[in-house]
Design a binder for these strands. Structure first.
Lengths: 217, 217
DNA sequence: GTTGATTTTAAACAAACGTTTCATTGCTCT
DNA sequence: AGAGCAATGAAACGTTTGTTTAAAATCAAC
């Protein structure tokens, strides 16, 4: 009958309707959440018939999971963990890692993708473990190992919290920018671009762990 | 007919049905969000008739706004901004402020209240500006002023980002605990209680801004 | 040009949604 | 007791939801 219940397979000859559906679903789910977004709105925005979601994905929930995966692959651009240059001190490695972290959070091109992924992370559903397994956990573990190298002898508990301090700083600008703009004004927050933020987080973090950068005023 | 469109007034003789409705709505909205929670589920959990939401609040949206306000007042316990002791150095004032911030984020008794408020903050809707105006903005401004006292001469941009670094650390444990548990295990994150977190955030922050506490190993 | 599979379409489905109606209850005054 | 008002109850309202149906359209292969 139809390739509905099991995905039509990434046979690489996937029709373009499927892709447009994913694109529209990404925007809708990112903006209104799973329950807030309707399949009618999604299919309308994608320019396909409403039955297409059943045809290509089976139902709304499987469309959502596939959309989160799709958004995640778009947001990360395929890069797993940033590859460090061979000759670099542990502190420099940590700094590069933080800059990469901030870059991924900010990347304006993939804003909606990131927004959807973040939404799923705030309220972990059936698609969360996929993103965690193949993206977040490797990043978190890599950060912890780099911190461990810089801070040998620190107990696991404080090591974990130090990592959370780094991630917390980075996540803030992604998760709470609307509120920050509501408090301090759109202009005041708008000037905090990628470079300003990453410079600040690097300086703040390195100073906090006892390895202040050179020109730390 | 009924006191529906305008609230029945806090005549202090408010019936107990209204309160139960708010309580049930708080839990439902916190767990499933605005669109995900249904008035049937709420009224069922509250043990009242479905028409009660129309009778007491007019419609679902006004119930939601009132619930967020209610949750906010519950979460903050009525305290506006922590009152500092008269004899305290600027750094001590900042430390006390951070500890208060962490305490408010953690407070397990008001967990659902805080969860609902945070959910509204992540996706600002019609109830966000109320919470921002009478709770978040005063806190944010107070934090900035205390940072300004400790760090005189720092330009506004970096002052803002320093505040975001503090808030970002505190928010992390509230907004991303489920994901953190998914990554590192429930046990590893569970041991990070209020005291451990506030001690860490204080030490991390004070060190980062060049005022390390005494016993900073 | 016809066959057969794949994709798209319009229409309909039952279920759940928020909301309203109206009758009924409980209570307080006179 | 009876009138007036606040509160509750059961049932239905019209929409919108996700999903399905079956016919029409598109396309490749023979």
């Amino acid at each position: 009958m139809t390739p509905s219940d099991s995905p039509p397979e990434p046979t690489d000859a996937t029709p373009e309707a499927r892709e447009r559906l994913l694109l529209a679903a990404e925007a809708a789910f990112a903006e209104h959440g799973y329950e807030g977004a309707t399949v009618r709105e999604i299919t309308k925005r994608a320019g396909v018939n409403i039955a297409a979601v059943s045809y290509y994905f089976g139902d709304k929930e499987r469309l959502y999971v596939e959309t989160v995966k799709y958004a995640h692959s778009c947001a990360t651009g395929g890069l797993p963990v940033p590859t460090p240059p061979p000759d670099a001190t542990p502190v420099q490695l940590l700094e590069l890692f933080i800059r990469e972290l901030v870059r991924r959070m900010h990347a304006p091109a993939r804003a909606t993708s990131m927004q959807l992924v973040m939404r799923e992370m705030s309220n972990p559903g059936k698609a969360a473990h996929v993103v965690v397994d193949e993206f977040v956990r490797p990043m978190a573990f890599a950060l912890r190992e780099r911190l461990r190298t810089v801070l040998p002898g620190l107990d696991e508990k404080r090591l974990l919290m130090t990592g959370f301090s780094v991630i917390g700083q980075c996540l803030f600008y992604r998760q709470n920018r609307p509120i920050a703009e509501l408090i301090f004004g759109k202009d005041a927050v708008g000037v905090l671009d990628l470079e300003a933020v990453s410079n600040h987080v690097v300086r703040f973090t390195l100073t906090a762990i006892g390895h202040p950068p050179e020109g730390s005023s």
